[in-house]
C-alpha cells in the first residue's frame, strides 16, 4: 500500500509545503526583520515589530476587532440557538428545507451579500428612502460606515456557522430527558435553562469559535461597511502590505492574529475533542 499512498499524497503535500508552509515561514522571518527605506525588508533581526503591537495607535484597532468579533459572536449565538431549536423540533422532511434555507444565502458570493447591506444602509439606500418617504425622518440616518454596520454584516455573513453545529447538537439530544423534565414538573423555560442549554454546551462552544475566528480575521466586511473609521485587524494587515509598505510590521500583526486563532482552536479541541468540529 505504501507506494500508492505516497504517490497519492505527494501533490497535496507539495502544494501545502510550497504554497502554505513556506509562505508562512517567510512571514515569520519578515516579522523579525526591519523595514527598508523603499519598503523592502532588511536586517538586522529585531523584536521591534512585536513591541509595536502594543502601541496605542494599533492597540485600539486590535481591541476594536476583539470587541466587535465578540459582539458579533454573541449575537450569532443568541439568534442561532432558538432557530436551531426550531429546526431540530421540525418534522424530518421540514428539517431539510429549513436547513437549506439557512445555507442558501451562504452559497452566493460573499461580496454580493455584503453589497446587499450597503444597498440597504447607505444614505440613499433602501431603509433611508423608505423612512424619508414615510416622513419619519427628514435627513437620512447615518447607517452605513460605522461599527454597528460592521457587526450587522459580520452576523449576516457568519450566522450559518453558528446554526449548523447548534442544530446537530440539539438534534441529537435525548428526547426522553426533555420529557422526564416535563413529567417532573419543570416548566418549558426551566427545561430550557436546566436541561437543554447545559447539554448544548459543546455545540455553543463550537458555534462560538466557528463564528469568532472568521470575524476576527474579517477583511471585506469592515472594509465595505465600516468605512475608514472602523477598520479591523485584517484591514490593518492589508494596509501594511500595500499603502504603508511596512511588510515586517504587517507580518507581525498576521502572526499575532494566527496565534489568537490557534489558541482558540486548541482550547476548543482540548475541551471537546475532534468531534467538536
Amino acid at each position: 500500500m505504501n507506494r500508492l499512498r505516497t504517490i497519492f499524497l505527494a501533490p497535496s503535500a507539495a502544494f501545502t509545503v510550497i504554497l502554505f508552509l513556506i509562505p508562512l515561514s517567510i512571514i515569520v522571518a519578515y516579522s523579525f526583520l526591519t523595514r527598508g527605506v523603499y519598503g523592502g525588508v532588511v536586517g538586522p533581526w529585531t523584536l521591534e515589530n512585536y513591541q509595536r503591537l502594543f502601541d496605542p495607535l494599533y492597540g485600539i484597532i486590535l481591541w476594536r476587532s476583539l470587541v466587535m468579533s465578540t459582539l458579533a459572536t454573541i449575537l450569532c449565538l443568541v439568534i442561532a440557538f432558538p432557530l436551531a431549536l426550531f429546526i431540530a423540533r421540525a418534522s424530518d422532511r421540514a428539517k431539510g428545507i429549513y436547513l437549506y434555507l439557512v445555507i442558501l444565502p451562504f452559497w452566493t458570493s460573499f461580496l454580493v451579500r455584503t453589497y446587499a447591506w450597503m444597498f440597504l444602509l447607505r444614505d440613499t439606500g433602501f431603509i433611508n428612502t423608505i423612512l424619508t418617504s414615510l416622513h419619519i425622518i427628514r435627513e437620512p440616518l447615518p447607517l452605513l460606515y460605522n461599527e454597528t454596520a460592521v457587526v450587522v454584516g459580520l452576523v449576516y455573513g457568519y450566522l450559518p456557522f453558528a446554526v449548523l453545529p447548534l442544530f446537530s447538537n440539539l438534534d441529537r439530544l435525548d428526547k426522553n430527558l426533555l420529557e422526564s423534565a416535563a413529567d417532573l414538573g419543570a416548566t418549558p423555560w426551566q427545561t430550557l435553562y436546566k436541561v437543554i442549554i447545559p447539554l448544548c454546551a459543546p455545540g455553543l462552544r463550537a458555534a462560538g469559535v466557528l463564528v469568532f475566528i472568521p470575524c476576527l480575521g474579517a477583511y471585506l466586511t469592515p472594509d465595505l461597511l465600516g468605512g475608514g473609521k472602523s477598520i479591523m485587524i485584517g484591514n490593518l494587515i492589508q494596509n501594511q502590505f500595500t499603502t504603508a509598505r511596512d511588510w515586517p510590521f504587517g507580518s507581525a500583526i498576521s502572526l499575532a492574529l494566527m496565534a489568537l486563532v490557534m489558541v482558540l482552536l486548541v482550547s476548543l479541541l482540548r475541551q471537546d475533542g475532534e468531534e467538536a468540529l
Partner: peptide
Amino acid sequence: LSGSLYLSLVTPEIVTGISMLA
C-alpha cells in the same frame, strides 16, 4: 499533512493572501 491542511482552512484569508504574495 492533515494538520497543515486544516490549519490552512482556519487561517484568515488576508494572512494567506499576504503570505502567498510575499
